[in-house]
Amino acid sequence: MSKIQDKFKELKSKNEKALISYIMTGFPNENATLSIVRGLVKGGADILELGFPFSDPIADGPVIQNASTVSLNKGAKIEKFFKIVKKIRKETDIPLVLMTYTNVLYTHGYSAFMLKAKSAGIDGLILPDMSIEESKEYLKSAKKNNLDTIFLVSPNTKNDRLKKIAKASTGFLYLVAVFGTTGVQTKIHKYTIDAIKNAKKIVNRKLPLGIGFGVSTPVDVKKYVSAGVDAVIVGSANLKIIENTSSSKLQNKITEYTKKLKSSTRI
């Protein structure tokens, strides 16, 4: 059992859903990352999703794009990223998921990259541009290195394909809430609720279902939880707080906000 799977089991016994908190590492700078992580953990985040920037993030909206650019301009490098992960791992046992784009892994070689990621303390991977058709080598390396492969599905994914993707997914399955990039949403669409219900029917019950893209308020969290998801993923909303808060107040602010979101995951 992976750390991620254990976490879902533990939450189930407590009648809670998972809050997965995303941040971009190195945004607004390297030092802030550890402090923000502490804030998230204190606030009750169940799983952390750590972004590593890619120069061309096609699935991301303006907030994460900007955070990626800032992080890269401040010298983000994968070796530095693994060092940050190791520091986080020393402080907490929380499951850590890396989100980046395929080319970052491909360039280093899937196996070589994953070996380093795993030994630094990463538990799972999310690559929004890795499609199931191209994933053979990626899956093989992940299996060898005991890393969970979290694939994304969309409200327009057909059922036979949904089953195929779910079969390749471990840890959880990531349902994209909207037709769009990360961080842009004003309301909860009916098509999203339908997609949640459909996925819960189609996909193996043992595989938790997470929802992300545009999830930002406790109200959103409540609505998605009552529609049946096992996890909510909050990303751009965290980055907006980080953008707008002075560094001395940041950790507390993140903790407060995370607490509010977390309390909405309790049924």
Binding site: D56, N103, V104, T107
Partner: peptide
């Protein structure tokens, strides 16, 4: 260039050692 993935395809790319374009 070196082999890599951008804009939906695997091809040769001008990129740094970390895969940044």
């Amino acid at each position: 260039g070196k082999k890599g993935v951008l804009h939906g395809m695997m091809t040769y790319l001008l990129q740094d050692n970390d895969g940044q374009i």
